[in-house]
Amino acid sequence: MAKTTGFSWRKPRLIEREGKRMDWHKARLHPIWVGGRDGYRYSVLYDGKLLVERSRDPETDAARALLAKGITGKLTMLDGKTGKPRTVINIEKAAGIITTEENRSGLRFRKPPRRADNSPPSPESKVA
């Protein structure tokens, strides 16, 4: 008899809260030891497919990837081995932030820095 973890790739359930429908999604979080100063990186599987690979910030990276696919609502990050819930995030809110590590007070959520002209660097502006 196979051991089950309580996780299935069913369609997200709908919750109605304060008159709004909210979609609940599940993804599996898999740690990868890279060693050295970096420690762990994380890969995220959603609907059985790789969504994010080797991320330092898997929750916000997964939220940005899902939002780019038009998926909104809440995302429950499950442990890759045990299937136990680890974190729950609001996809729309998490897509707009990054996690930064600060010496004075540990991890913080911040808005990503913006470039003055909002454009990618051109090949001419790169320093050789």
Rank of each mutant, 00 (worst) to 15 (best):
A2V: 12
T5N: 15
S8Y: 09
R10S: 15
R10Y: 05
R10I: 06
R10A: 14
P12S: 09
L14N: 07
E16P: 00
R17P: 02
R17C: 08
E18T: 05
G19F: 07
G19N: 12
K20W: 06
K20N: 12
K20P: 02
M22E: 13
A27C: 14
R28K: 15
H30P: 00
H30R: 11
P31N: 11
V34F: 01
G35T: 01
R37P: 02
D38Y: 00
G39M: 02
S43Y: 02
V44C: 02
K49E: 12
K49G: 03
L50H: 04
L51D: 07
L51Y: 06
L51I: 09
V52E: 00
E53T: 04
E53W: 02
R54H: 14
P58I: 05
T60N: 15
D61F: 03
A63K: 03
A63N: 06
R64E: 10
R64G: 13
L67Q: 11
L67E: 10
G70T: 08
T72E: 15
K74Y: 09
L75A: 04
T76D: 12
M77V: 01
D79R: 03
D79V: 05
G80L: 07
T82L: 15
T82Y: 06
T82F: 09
T82G: 11
G83S: 08
G83F: 07
R86C: 05
V88S: 11
V88P: 00
I89G: 02
N90P: 00
E92F: 01
K93I: 09
A94C: 03
A95Y: 02
G96M: 04
G96P: 00
E101Q: 12
E101R: 09
N103L: 09
R104Y: 08
L107E: 12
L107P: 00
F109S: 15
P113S: 10
R114Y: 03
R114I: 05
R115L: 13
A116L: 12
A116H: 07
D117K: 08
N118P: 00
S119E: 14
P121S: 10
P121W: 06
S122R: 15
P123L: 07
E124L: 07
V127T: 13
A128W: 11
